[in-house]
């Protein structure tokens, strides 16, 4: 098998460009070609996706009821300005 043009070391540096769809078409082709043959880089990309997904679960809930009441007060004061 021939050595792919894009190395694993290079791939990990451009993984965000790939995920953000900010990659020129030729580079994207090399990237996807590499992935097709490299289980390790597939794992890496998969872990990157899992990281993004898990980070998304940290989103905190809404304002506390007290904060919400505070905002309503701000609103009512403003309305009666």
């Amino acid at each position: 098998m021939s050595v792919p043009e894009l190395t694993c070391k290079e791939l990990v540096e451009v993984v965000t460009d790939y995920l953000e769809a900010r990659m020129p078409a030729e580079q994207r082709l090399l990237f996807e070609e590499h992935l097709a043959f490299c289980d390790w880089c597939q794992s890496y990309l998969q872990q990157m996706r899992a990281t993004i997904h898990l980070t998304g679960t940290l989103r905190e809930d809404d304002l506390t009821p007290e904060a919400r009441d505070g905002l309503l007060e701000v609103f009512r004061d403003w309305r009666h300005r």
Binding site: K9, S43, Q46, Q47, L54
Partner: peptide
Amino acid sequence: RWAGHWATPPEPWNRPEHELL
């Protein structure tokens, strides 16, 4: 010959979703 390719590759996490979460 495989310069720049993984020497110590990433290990798949292989964890069930509930454990990851």
